[in-house]
Design a protein around this nucleic acid. Structure first.
Lengths: 256, 256
DNA sequence: CGTGAGATTGATAGCGTTCAACTGTGGTGG
DNA sequence: CCACCACAGTTGAACGCTATCAATCTCACG
């Protein structure tokens, strides 16, 4: 009965009972998808947002010339393609990378969450902000650096997020992507992704075995490519107090 | 006495008196800056967010190798580098492009806004989402398209935002940027920016006179480069009702 | 008229794409 | 159990876009 979104948000902030209850209400409609399934298609009207309960997904947009840009990968506890909330039609395509389980949540439920739990609304704003900055980092990386660096930055970023999500200690993880997918994420062709991976291996900082990636010296690689980790924490000092009914809160947190 | 942020948000949604009042409270500390001034520096602790009252600014980040990526330009009514809210230290450098006037607003004031006016919080979330998607579009553009297309997309994007902000009817506008700046925004060197502009002029779809840009056929150029306008509207159907005190609202909106 | 910043243009080199071929591997049907 | 197939990964060769470096030009300004 662990709520993924609650777990995620709790990493930033101790939540009140009422807040946790509200989050769990968002996670009642469970759906499962097989690997490769397109869940929401760019440009189509959509009714629901999705919270990831398990599995990998990605959000992508398609360009004029038919090529695809993968914007972000989503893991347990992520609110997928949340940026689409600004429109009735989805801004991106949501695709299951692996088999996954999602909770479906009506758009209006997010509005109610802002109303009933402003502090959670503000926290979601901050989380969304951190994702925006991660996108911005990738923008800079793609615009200005050579292929090998883009790939390394990408791998460090995924590793960093998996750490937060899975609590995996190590620098070894499985990357269930084709090199084509990887290329669509970092803006390279699959051929050059392959060469970039080879170059990385040649530095001795990275090893591969099939889909398994092992970063042999995370610090050295981080320094080499100038990677900035944006996922550790979000600032909460600016958030409003947990409610208009502070007394009830106090009771409930102690109960919890 | 026109409040820029209020004006901006009113474009999406009729605001109540209380909401408008709250927004105006954020705009009491006015500051002026000359062109070129660095207002917030990446990585430094910061206390305040800024609302643009007049002028152009941009937010940028610096890469490992010293090069600069401009993430976004800011105009009247924009909440600048709002994504930094997720950290105590600014995620980006905020620089005045032209002389400008800003309102300074403590970070915690944003938190109070979420608490006291949840609907505004949700609306800010949506606006932030639309900016995130704009960043994502640029990411795709930079990763996958040739220089001429990137520049054209950038110009169409700026034009589109100026339309919203200034209500300018035409396809002619002043671009107070050096070609170096433009290159830092679209991921090209200044030399290649120049060649890309020349190529665009050669198509007959664009004219330049100094800093003045005239797009001769917006629709044709939009179609040519596959530009998607993300600035027109944000969806508000998911927002919560305007307050817990519906009756007061009703009075106040009619009074207004 | 000198000065300096930005714009423009040219020559060259390199990175990444494109296209194509080949290899390895896991799954499937006979 | 094996032949076959599809798909991903790998590698090579040639091309083209963009960076780099440098020189020149333009223009506003003191």
């Amino acid at each position: 009965m662990v709520s993924p979104l609650e777990t995620r948000l709790s990493q930033h902030l101790p939540l009140t009972f009422a807040e946790r209850d509200a989050l769990q209400w968002l996670e009642r409609r469970e759906q499962r998808f097989i690997a490769g399934k397109v869940i929401v298609r760019e440009g189509e009207a959509y009714e629901n947002l999705h919270i990831v309960a398990s599995g990998w997904l990605h959000g992508s947009i398609r360009l004029h010339d038919g090529s695809r840009q993968i914007l972000r990968f989503y893991f347990v506890g992520d609110l997928t393609t949340a940026f689409s909330i600004a429109w009735r039609h989805s801004a991106a395509t949501l695709t299951a990378v692996s088999a996954c389980t999602l909770y479906e949540m009506p758009r209006a439920a997010l509005g109610r969450l802002f109303r009933d739990h402003p502090r959670l609304g503000a926290l979601l704003y901050a989380v969304s902000a951190s994702e925006h900055v991660a996108t911005a980092d990738r923008l800079a990386s793609i615009g200005r650096t050579a292929g090998m660096y883009r790939v390394a930055t990408f791998l460090l970023d995924i590793r960093s997020r998996l750490l937060v999500v899975d609590g995996l200690a190590g620098a070894t993880f499985e990357l269930p992507l084709t090199q084509q997918d990887l290329g669509d994420a970092v803006g390279l062709t699959k051929a050059h992704v392959n060469r970039s991976l080879k170059s990385l291996e040649a530095t001795g900082l990275l090893e591969r075995e099939g889909k398994i990636i092992r970063i042999k010296d995370v610090d050295a690689l981080t320094k080499l490519v100038g990677f900035k980790d944006r996922h550790g924490h979000v600032a909460i000092d600016w958030l409003p107090p947990s409610a208009n009914f502070g007394d009830i809160d106090h009771n409930e947190t102690t109960v919890a």
